[in-house]
Amino acid sequence: MSFFEFRGHFRSVGIPLRVGAAIASCCWITTLHATEGDGNNYPIGVNTLLSGVQPPPGNHIYVYLQEYEATTLVGNSGNPSGSVSEFSLHAQAAAFRLSHVWRDVTFLGATLESRTNIPFVNLDLHFDAHTPKGTVYKSGSATGLSDLTVGPLFLGWHWGNLHQVVGLEFFLPTGSYDASRLVNPGRHYYSMQPNYAVTWIPVPNVEFSARALYSVNSVNHVTDYHSGNEFIVDYNAGFRITPMWQIGASGYFYRQVTDDTQHGQSVNGNGNRGQVFAVGPSIAYGTRKFSVALKYQREMMVRNRPEGNRVWLQMYMPFE
């Protein structure tokens, strides 16, 4: 939703863009620690700008482009892992979200929305692994369709300058997967993610948004690996400098809250529980029929994951 459409639908709010809503799609990054292969079904950092605002009735398309680069793999202590060196991970993703907000249909005072997300990834990973028998070079790459997301029902409420969305999404293992490969477009297990998003506009030029979700993962029956459940918060604080331009800071917090297990045993003795916090600047622009946002997010406070930088280019257009 652009600023103009947003104002027309909720005239008490003056915010320029509707480009940062949920995509919730695939495993966009797949590597070594913290949940199997280290990736997430949910692309952390995507739901930042106006995440609690549901678009008006009709059809909507969102395009999300992501670039992620990491040169450090962090262990459980918060220090670079001693088991690898020369670590390099590059991941690019393109995802398309289709959204339909139902006309003249409400439930408990909320408007209703259905979503689906179609992601594609390009992954490249290489590093030196240090083993008792010496150093071994490892590398892998993969390109293709990742895991689809289906969000059958989201409820959106709009109370003055407070906007909320509640929904449930399912991640389906549609991406290619081979347990012998170092990286895979798909994760080969299902996930269910209840989520809640809120946007508060205390004054016309200021926005605070957050989206929280809890990911419940199923077992990968090929490897008998059960990735732990995950808690994620995307957030944004924005200031509108003109009717169409907004600047701000956005990022995410991720924490794995249960252990990884394999064959019924905790993995590596500590469950491989991942953690990361990220923050960075954002800029967004919107017109009546098109919105775009550019975001940079720098990772820190990392445990059992790569530590890197994430860049998003997000676009929105309505269509009939």
Rank of each mutant, 00 (worst) to 15 (best):
H9V: 05
H9L: 15
S12P: 07
G14P: 02
I15L: 13
R18G: 14
V19D: 14
I23Q: 09
I23D: 11
S25C: 12
S25W: 15
W28Q: 10
T30D: 15
T30S: 15
T35Y: 13
G37C: 10
V46H: 07
T48W: 05
G52Y: 06
Q54C: 06
Q54R: 01
P57R: 12
P57Y: 04
G58D: 05
H60G: 07
E67V: 06
Y68F: 06
E69S: 05
T72D: 14
T72S: 03
S77W: 08
N79M: 11
S81V: 12
S88V: 03
L89K: 00
H90V: 04
A94D: 14
A95G: 09
S99Y: 01
R103T: 15
D104A: 13
S114L: 03
R115Q: 11
T116K: 13
L123S: 13
T131W: 09
K133E: 15
V136F: 05
V136W: 05
K138Y: 07
S141M: 00
D147A: 09
T149R: 05
V150Q: 03
L153W: 06
F154C: 03
H158D: 09
N161Y: 11
V166H: 05
V166G: 08
L168G: 03
E169P: 00
F171H: 06
S176R: 01
S176V: 00
Y177E: 04
N184E: 09
M192F: 01
A197Y: 07
A197Q: 03
W200P: 06
I201Y: 15
P202S: 10
V203I: 12
L213D: 06
Y214A: 00
S215G: 01
H221E: 11
H221C: 00
V222G: 00
D224T: 12
D224Q: 11
S227T: 07
S227H: 02
N229S: 06
F239E: 02
F239Q: 00
I241G: 12
T242M: 07
A249Q: 11
S250Q: 02
Y254R: 05
N268I: 02
N270L: 04
N270V: 09
G271K: 08
T287F: 12
T287M: 10
L294Q: 05
Q297V: 00
M300W: 14
N304D: 15
N304V: 03
E307L: 03
V311M: 11
Q314A: 09
Y316F: 00
M317D: 07
F319E: 13
